[in-house]
Design a protein around this nucleic acid. Structure first.
Length: 201
DNA sequence: GACCAGATTGTCT
DNA sequence: GACAATCTGGTCA
């Protein structure tokens, strides 16, 4: 079980779109009393505070989106469609509501536990979607506001000397699942070009 | 593989 | 009361 350094506070000081790209290749890991699971981040989406009607904070702060206004490097987890969760990394300085949605992981550790939680067999199916990966890693609203630089839910480098994913291997597309007028044309989705584990192409 | 209906509930207007 | 940054299982090909 690898245990490389958590991404430090400073990692989250960049512009949100850069963070969304730089998170590709990082490792999201979660330790619970059920066990340990981890996966390599292969797909992300940026949600911005300006000119982005698709952002949950586009109409100001509410009880649900309060985490987005908090400090960068923390978790924003919300319930969607009454039965699924989505996990975001809060970015931008405190008071500025931006975040990166983690949309897919390449399973790395705890595949058996993921499979049990998901009721799926194929590694490719375990974490290939924002709600799938939350189910697989046991992420719920209990993890809302969690500090991702320490603690049981955190984001780490994938190796002691991490190689960033080169721009040539990153595909940029519009975001998934946004209705009309919600910024559906903005190119704020990023995924690793040759990964088998993304939610869709 | 593409397309579609249905699930299910917290949140905001 | 409408809707939501989704997923699953069905049909038809």
């Amino acid at each position: 079980v690898p245990d490389f350094a958590p991404l430090p506070q400073g990692f989250y000081a960049s512009p949100t779109e850069d963070i969304a790209r730089n998170l590709l290749g990082g490792v999201l890991r979660h330790e619970t009393d059920e066990g340990f699971c981890a996966g390599v981040i292969v797909e992300t989406e940026a949600y911005l505070s300006a000119g982005d009607p698709g952002c949950h904070a586009a109409r100001g702060e509410t009880a649900r989106n309060a985490a987005m206004f908090g400090p960068p490097g923390t978790a924003y987890v919300y319930l969607i469609y009454g039965m699924y969760h989505c996990f975001n990394v809060v970015t931008a300085p405190e008071g500025v509501a931006e975040a990166v949605l983690i949309r897919a992981l390449e399973p790395l550790n705890g595949l058996e536990l993921m499979a049990a939680r998901r009721g799926a067999e194929q590694a490719r199916e375990l974490c290939s979607g924002p709600a799938k990966l939350c189910r697989a890693l046991g992420i719920t609203r209990e993890q809302n506001l969690a500090d991702l630089t320490r603690g049981p839910l955190r984001i780490c480098r994938s190796s002691p000397e991490p190689q960033p994913i080169p721009p040539s291997r990153i595909v940029t597309t519009p975001r998934i699942g946004l209705g009309e007028g919600k910024g559906e044309d903005l190119l704020l989705r990023y995924y690793v070009a040759d990964s088998e584990f993304v939610s869709r192409r």
